[in-house]
Nucleic acid binder design. Structure first.
Lengths: 128, 128
DNA sequence: ATGATTGTATTATTATCATAGTACAATAAA
DNA sequence: TTTATTGTACTATGATAATAATACAATCAT
């Protein structure tokens, strides 16, 4: 798993984001056992308390549940997972377009810029 | 000016972002006088120290300069402004596509979702 | 010259975040 | 039964962010 954390936002929030992406993209499938808190914390290179906070947040959302001492599992509600995936995508699209609009790009210009990328295969430091 | 601040990121960073957008979009034009620190802080509803920090950051970037006691002004280097605008746009596009990819959307799917929006005119809470 | 406005600096206080270290309860495994 | 693993709770510490409250220096307008 890739734990690429940045310093410009609370770490526990980024952990929630990364784990959620893992779930909605199926890399952590419905019903899967989630590694132990200490294990995940070690992988991510963060304090167990920080990871615990992230996991607790995700349980509150319903994306995970705990079987006391047997461990923590991804929810089996595939429909919920799908809905969350679409909600996040929708939010990101809206946020992206709003942000580009703030920069003074019309929708047409945004689409043009995206088309340019299509064929060109990944420039501008996406994979830096 | 719209000062829509969120609690999930340092305020001074958001101030830099908003002011930068104002400049690169031309709403604050090259050479324009920038309102006084205390004035801007009042408008944004933040502490003058916080606004001062944001403005100092922008001067370090070269987007503004100060004429001691006469006030603060937007840089007159239009080329720099343009470059920054394109850099930000490029970064956001890359970040957006990378994020959608993490959610399990192929580039084709992303373009399809965007096309859907074209015509439909703004759904999904963009304007909450 | 005077007063107001400007940017800037300083100190203090509070809240949040992240970490370290420790501890405990429940239960699966031996 | 014993041991190890699990989630969870708790206290403490340091760093950063944001605020409040002043204060000072430069200069523009009067």
């Amino acid at each position: 798993m890739q734990w690429q954390l940045r310093g410009d936002r609370p770490i526990y929030q980024q952990l929630v984001e990364i784990l959620t992406e893992q779930i909605v993209s199926g890399q952590l499938a419905a019903g899967d056992k989630v590694p132990a808190v200490r294990e995940l914390a070690a992988q991510a290179g963060v304090n167990p308390n920080t990871m615990q906070r992230a996991l607790a947040d995700m349980e509150r959302e319903g994306l995970m549940y705990t079987n006391r001492t047997s461990g923590r599992y991804v929810t089996e509600d595939k429909e919920m997972i799908q809905k969350i995936r679409e909600q996040i995508a929708s939010d990101r699209i809206a946020e992206f377009l709003a942000g580009m609009s703030q920069l003074g790009f019309s929708e047409q210009e945004v689409y043009s810029l995206l088309e340019k990328r299509q064929g060109e295969g990944n420039k501008n430091g996406t994979e830096k």
